[in-house]
Amino acid sequence: MFQADSANQETRKQLLQLLKGGNAHQSFEDAVKDLPASLRGVKPDKLPYSIWQLVEHIRIAQWDILEFSRDPAHQSPDWPEGYWPKELAPADEAAWEQSLAQIQKDQDSFMALLNDPNNDLYTPFPYGDGQNLLREALLIADHTSYHTGEIIIIRRLLDAWK
């Protein structure tokens, strides 16, 4: 018979794989890999944002979900202005690299929350509107994969995708 501990371990394993991406879609890392710096701030005709704005939006949203999941006192940015950068392009290469590094660091931190057997996946947080760790993991994965697809579409429009 399948035990609850085994089910929890398998659920955690599947969530970690989902967060890393690459199963049913390209990973975020693949989507931004080798993107020419000159294209990071290009906003194609009839689209509302650049790749830089999408990358920063992913970073901000993931950070917010991470902090919400581990800090009852966390205050989320105002929606929508707090989640979308105004600048079309990063200030420089360092800003681009810092954003990518922060996305990875925050993903690793969230994955550590998932890996901690003391953190129940299903029990609602004692704050919020009934959210739990499972829901927040699915939210990060869904949100990131959605915008990763948009990054790839923009790259295709700019003839910068394999």
Rank of each mutant, 00 (worst) to 15 (best):
residue 154 I to C: 00
residue 158 L to P: 11
residue 58 I to H: 06
residue 35 L to C: 15
residue 154 I to P: 02
residue 151 I to R: 07
residue 37 A to K: 10
residue 14 Q to M: 01
residue 75 Q to A: 13
residue 162 K to S: 10
residue 154 I to F: 05
residue 84 W to P: 01
residue 102 Q to H: 11
residue 96 W to Q: 08
residue 146 Y to V: 05
residue 34 D to L: 07
residue 123 T to D: 08
residue 77 P to I: 02
residue 21 G to F: 05
residue 20 K to H: 03
residue 140 I to T: 04
residue 153 I to A: 09
residue 89 A to L: 11
residue 90 P to C: 06
residue 63 W to P: 01
residue 48 P to Q: 04
residue 29 E to Q: 14
residue 97 E to Y: 04
residue 113 L to W: 05
residue 118 N to A: 15
residue 63 W to L: 14
residue 54 L to N: 04
residue 78 D to N: 13
residue 41 G to P: 12
residue 64 D to C: 09
residue 30 D to M: 12
residue 31 A to K: 13
residue 83 Y to H: 00
residue 134 L to C: 00
residue 13 K to Y: 00
residue 42 V to G: 07
residue 89 A to P: 06
residue 103 I to P: 00
residue 129 D to S: 03
residue 77 P to G: 07
residue 107 Q to E: 04
residue 116 D to R: 10
residue 45 D to E: 13
residue 91 A to T: 09
residue 137 A to H: 01
residue 146 Y to G: 00
residue 105 K to V: 14
residue 31 A to I: 13
residue 11 T to G: 12
residue 159 D to K: 15
residue 123 T to A: 14
residue 107 Q to V: 00
residue 54 L to V: 15
residue 39 L to M: 00
residue 119 N to I: 03
residue 94 A to Q: 15
residue 37 A to Q: 13
residue 2 F to T: 06
residue 105 K to H: 15
residue 57 H to E: 01
residue 75 Q to S: 09
residue 95 A to T: 09
residue 63 W to V: 13
residue 88 L to G: 07
residue 36 P to I: 12
residue 132 N to D: 04
residue 34 D to H: 13
residue 102 Q to W: 08
residue 157 L to Y: 12
residue 87 E to G: 02
residue 154 I to Q: 07
residue 157 L to A: 15
residue 82 G to I: 06
residue 30 D to A: 14
residue 127 Y to T: 13
residue 112 A to H: 12
residue 117 P to C: 08
residue 154 I to H: 02
residue 122 Y to H: 14
residue 149 G to Y: 04
residue 31 A to G: 13
residue 152 I to K: 14
residue 139 L to V: 05
residue 29 E to I: 08
residue 37 A to T: 14
residue 158 L to E: 03
residue 79 W to H: 13
residue 50 S to V: 01
